[in-house]
Design a protein around this nucleic acid. Structure first.
Lengths: 121, 121
DNA sequence: CAACCATATTCCGATATGGGAATACGTCAA
DNA sequence: TTGACGTATTCCCATATCGGAATATGGTTG
């Protein structure tokens, strides 16, 4: 029962939090502005408890912030938390954008990057 | 019982595939060019079976492509698969980029966002 | 063919995840 | 205070994920 980790905890980082479709939906809704749990429940067609649970995860990972308003809790998007993902993915943009694709091809030709293993010439 | 889904399968989409740190590492390495499984094992300090397993997932999701070279399999990045993630996250960029932040603040002022019901003009 | 190298697959165990249902708060209205 | 509402937490369970070890599969070399 020591270091045995079966799977990275969902609550670990934004990458994991966002891997769950429902949570992405929640963020999509919140992108339009503050929403109460009930609002989200209605918008997502998901049971209230599950919404609260997902919000918990999103909150722990810093993707949303809460504000109390009477007996309601208004959640709002904390977009900054998505930046790590954006930054990481952006690093690969050249790999799917055509204009870069051509350039990459040339660079690989020039640097022999394609392998680093020197296979088959 | 059929519909009982405990958790979205990792093999479902790029979001899930990339939620796993190791798999991100693999993609990072592949970003530099084609690599054999052995190369990856060395680069990642991870056991060969696990690397193969992760590659399987990445392959099924379309994030990597394989090429056979004798008894080796050379994997290469299939960057395009990351585009969905990029696109989704990019939609939130305005939420963390300062220059947009200011604009958003103004818009919220104007639209009475704080009310929580009327939003996004 | 045999020994060997490269990679994939299978079996195992520990874990935690997500939905559903029930329930526990905390707040507001009468 | 009582009761209704809004939200969070807990319990249960089926599932699947990950790493580790062992093994299977397949090509290569001698």
């Amino acid at each position: 029962m020591v270091g045995r980790v079966a799977r990275a905890a969902t609550t670990t980082d934004a990458f994991n939090a966002v891997a769950e479709p429902r949570r992405r939906q929640i963020l999509d809704v919140l992108a339009a502005g503050e929403r109460s749990v009930t609002d989200l429940v209605a918008a997502l067609d998901l049971a209230q408890p599950q919404v609260s649970k997902h919000l918990r995860v999103l909150h722990e990972v810093g993707l949303v912030a809460v504000r109390e308003d009477g007996r309601r809790r208004l959640y709002r998007l904390e977009g900054r938390g998505l930046k790590p993902i954006h930054d990481w993915v952006a690093g690969f943009a050249r790999h799917w954008e055509d204009r870069f694709g051509a350039l990459d091809a040339v660079l690989e030709e020039l640097t022999g990057e394609t392998d680093g293993n020197d296979h088959e010439g």
